[in-house]
Design a protein around this nucleic acid. Sequence first.
DNA 1: AGCACAAATGAGAATGATTATCAAAATCAA
DNA 2: TTGATTTTGATAATCATTCTCATTTGTGCT
Lengths: 121, 121
Amino acid sequence: MSKSLNQVISTLERAGGFASAQEVYSNLRKQGKTTGLATVYRALQKAVSEKSVDVLRKEDGEALYRLCTTGHHHHLLCISCGKTIEIEGSAVEKWANTVAKNHGFRAVTHVVELSGLCAKC
Amino acid sequence: MSKSLNQVISTLERAGGFASAQEVYSNLRKQGKTTGLATVYRALQKAVSEKSVDVLRKEDGEALYRLCTTGHHHHLLCISCGKTIEIEGSAVEKWANTVAKNHGFRAVTHVVELSGLCAKC
DNA sequence: AGCACAAATGAGAATGATTATCAAAATCAA
DNA sequence: TTGATTTTGATAATCATTCTCATTTGTGCT
């Protein structure tokens, strides 16, 4: 187990199991680590190929990495004040799996993001 | 209605309603059009904001543009061959609205994309 | 320990998609 | 036709990601 892989994984844990490569990198630097950006990408790739992390895409195409073991959640974002709420979605998980099966798909991941105006805005 | 928008739309039609911005651009050039890359992106952005085209992401993060045939729907995308299935999601719509209400949110929109490997891949 | 060799690392360059800039060209109004 | 506004194309800039390579670190062996 390489050192950098552990650092990246624990950074993802600290971030709530959800961060971009660039965020992981800058978090490590803030902690005084000298880890390079290339190493962060390498560790993330390895983690992904080992299925301990999976990848989502933001709307702008940037990759977001997430620990697989952590029960994953979705977000409800206020487009006015930026407030974000993490939400459970077991109903969605089931629906996604059902739809995937019905069409013969395997290894299906899903992206679900909700956005609107929160109570205060 | 701008000329470039029409050119881009008909290129998408010819491509089976599915192509990257770079592909649209090179197809136009092959047809002898002098359309610039920036114009292609502008036309695609406009089409997306008008909901006549929607956007998916390949595994590497590149955007794929696609003519929107029906109203609101979601996608099941094969990350290997690019095959796309449009799916109904009334269950998801209801879930999204319920979650939004529970947190006092209004005017909530949602993004739901499923991706994985299709039966052939 | 000392040595040879493979793997991991970090810095910076290279890549590729996307966006921003800006002057020239097309369109429009009067 | 004028002048104003919009659209366009070329090119530069941006940003995430990947590649390169010299250096460091780790490992096995004696």
